[in-house]
Design a protein around this nucleic acid. Structure first.
Length: 498
RNA sequence: GGCUCGGUAGCUCAGCGGUAGAGCAGGUGACUCUUAAUCACUUGGUCCAAGGUUCGAAUCCUUGCCGGGCCA
């Protein structure tokens, strides 16, 4: 019964007492000549607005969802809630007249509208004394307890709308996400970048190494791939003469789901002609600090403040104060694994991994063993922002090689809170080298080569810097959310069997 | 994919071989400044599913489904 009630419509003859009672109230409203799914109710102030613009006896018009009710015979206190917050309303028999009887028919969860004047209760809460009350929409299902909330994570994600009704924290984080995206756009606009939209359905899924989702175009009779990255199209725009472009949109990767991975996720990519990875690192630093300051109001982020839901910081806050350190990959590995790391033998490195508690598999190449050291001993332990620069070229095959040291590439990886938040490159614009790299990457599957992209590069792409920022992870970092599902409104879950 | 934890009333949870429980929500009644309102009475369950063990299974075993965490 419990699971049945989650998503599927409940058969009338089988419904629980709670649902039957609410359904029966529909008829009672209709007998009163009132449509319980009423018409528009324009002109209501937001709950927070009412409180912020408080003045004794000021007339107000309000609307929201009824979330609590305290009936005391001939008067009632209740709270309504909207996107902006909660507001207490108060009703007395002599104030509402016949409409006072509506309280008997109202259930927690119903949408109501009303008019009245403001006053302050003897305990100091700003409250609306109602002179008019109407039902705007009937709720036929009980909402979870206001006090205990919804702690069943599965139900929170499957029925986010219920989570949003009940959880202050879910509302806070998801609204912050929207504000963060908004401020990112404003930042780029102020820097005179042009926002563009490039194909989400592509004939070749390029720009990253990931398994794509495949779909079919019926009229053209071809397979299309949901994009795994917008990179190759944004670079075509550099060829076409755009100098500063960015895109914020969804990428799709047909891979596992975890605390940090959702099959569709939001990516920001930006390309800047004539810039390099160092210029891009300054751009990212300024972007993230200014967004944090504007949205969170502080550069100390991620430490989770105690909330209504009792969630408290598990880790100390992250300090985003700029400038952020830049350190070379080789130097970081040497600090973590020993100054002699790059001079000792293959066998000695494996022994040292064991001594340092870093797990490796026998099949790993040397650079992979080194990267395990980096990931476990540097990346995972880095809390405050760190730009790791000059990665070995094997790890980043599509970036430009360093002029002085061709074994490394001109890139950075920005690490915050133990995870990679943003890579940045000096982009490869040599079409001959790019073709070699892409051919090597495609291996046997040469049909996966994006010939049109290579043709574009042959027309000439200016030197450019590029960055990618996983928006979901950025939001996690700034809000302190521990799962990507907490920053995505409707994360993907396997459907329940019927 | 591997390991591990979980799924009991609308919600939050207890019960872990011997009649299915609590708080809140809901229902009835009382109550004109409550705010987790209070007081009295009270309804509500295919214990995720299917097999098995047992005189007896929510509880033990097996398999499956869904979810969380860790690992790959």
């Amino acid at each position: 019964m419990r699971k049945e009630s989650l998503g599927s419509p409940i058969p009338m003859e089988d419904e629980s007492e709670l649902l039957a009672l609410r359904r029966a109230r529909l008829d009672t409203w209709r007998e009163l000549g009132i449509d319980p799914f009423g018409e528009a109710y324009p002109g209501a102030e937001g709950c927070r607005q009412v409180i912020e613009n408080y003045a004794d006896d000021r007339p107000v018009r309000i609307a929201g969802r009824l979330i609590s009710k305290r009936e005391m015979g001939k008067n009632v206190f209740a709270h309504i809630q909207d996107e902006t917050g909660k507001l207490q309303v108060y009703a007395q028999v002599q104030g509402l007249g016949d409409k006072f009887a509506f309280w008997k028919l109202l259930d927690i969860g119903d949408f109501i509208g009303g008019e009245g004047t403001l006053f302050t209760t003897k305990t100091g809460e700003k409250t609306v004394r109602l002179s008019d009350l109407r039902i705007l929409s009937k709720s036929l299902r009980p909402i979870p307890s206001q006090w205990y909330g919804l702690s069943d994570v599965e139900q929170r994600y499957r029925q986010r709308y219920v989570d949003l009704i009940v959880s202050e924290d879910a509302r806070r984080v998801l609204l912050l996400r929207s504000r963060i995206v908004c401020e990112v756009r404003r930042f780029f606009e102020a820097k005179e970048f042009t926002e563009v939209e490039t194909p989400m359905m592509q004939t070749v899924a390029g720009g990253a190494a990931a398994r794509p989702f495949v779909t079919k175009h019926n009229a053209l009779g071809i397979d299309l791939y949901m994009r795994i990255a917008p990179e190759l199209y944004l670079k075509r725009l550099l060829v076409g003469g755009f100098t500063k472009v960015f895109e914020i949109n969804r990428n799709f990767r047909n891979e596992g789901i975890s605390r940090r991975h959702n099959p569709e996720f939001t990516m920001l990519e930006a390309y800047w002609a004539y810039a390099d990875f160092e210029e891009m690192s300054r751009l990212v630093e300024e972007l993230i600090t200014s967004v944090a300051q504007k949205v969170m109001g502080t550069l100390q982020v991620g430490g989770r403040a105690a909330s209504e839901d009792g969630i408290v910081a598990a880790l100390p806050p992250i300090d985003l104060t700029a400038p952020w350190p830049r350190k070379r990959y080789h130097d970081l590995v040497k600090t973590a694994a020993g100054e002699d790391w790059f001079t000792i033998t293959h066998q000695e490195r494996r022994e040292r991994c064991a001594a340092l508690g870093v797990e490796i598999s026998p099949a790993m190449e040397d650079f992979e063993v080194t990267n395990q050291i980096f990931e476990k001993l540097v990346e995972a332990k880095t809390r405050n922002p760190l730009f790791v620069t000059h990665l070995p070229k094997e790890l980043v095959p599509l970036a430009r090689q360093n002029t002085a040291d061709p074994s490394v590439v001109d890139v950075f990886e920005l690490i915050i809170g133990g995870q990679e938040v943003a890579p940045g490159y000096s982009e490869l614009n040599n079409p001959v080298v790019q073709r070699q790299r892409l051919e090597a990457q495609a291996g046997e599957e040469q049909q996966n080569l994006d010939e049109d992209f290579l043709a574009a590069l042959e027309y000439g792409m200016p030197p450019a810097g590029g960055i990618g920022i996983g928006i979901d992870r950025l939001v996690m970092t700034l809000t302190g959310a521990e799962s990507i599902r907490d920053v995505i409104l409707f994360p993907l879950l396997k459907p329940k069997p019927a």
